[in-house]
């Protein structure tokens, strides 16, 4: 594995690489929607008083991106918790289950956009085609 790692870093300045990574993370449209006034820099999750509990309960086993990619109703989020408890050894969340659900339902609920079989192309970055 170290050998693979070496390939990546051998010539690229780490600071440059750092900036590129920041950029790449931002290209997933689902994760860049401004859903909260502010987001946690490490996880990308919305900051509010319940954030710390959500981070502790939800990001130990999986990437926060699994949350950021999704928009579910409260019942659907609950079914994900139950599924993880059945299949992935998620512990009983106890009283914090309500806190976690409040947070997810508030920040990561389905959008009210009209149903579209093919929506308009978004975020096109125009460039001059020379060839």
């Amino acid at each position: 594995m170290i050998k693979n790692l070496l390939l990546v870093v051998c010539t690229v300045g780490l600071f440059v690489a750092a900036m590129q990574r920041e950029h790449t993370y931002g290209t997933n449209p689902a994760s860049t929607q401004a859903l909260a006034d502010s987001v946690d820099a490490e996880t990308g999750l919305a900051l509010d008083p319940n954030f710390t509990i959500v981070k502790a309960q939800c990001t130990g086993c999986h990437s926060p991106k699994l949350i950021l990619q999704h928009r579910f109703t409260r019942d659907e989020w609950l079914s994900k918790i139950r599924w993880m408890q059945r299949n992935h050894k998620l512990w009983d969340l106890g009283e914090t289950e309500k806190t976690v659900l409040d947070y997810l339902a508030k920040h990561y609920a389905p959008s009210q956009a009209a149903y579209s079989r093919r929506e308009a192309l978004r975020n096109v970055k125009w460039y001059k085609l020379e060839k």
Partner: peptide
Amino acid sequence: MPKNHVPLAFEEGLA
């Protein structure tokens, strides 16, 4: 380096 930044070398999936 930006705070909490994980240098590329540790990101095995992107190697």
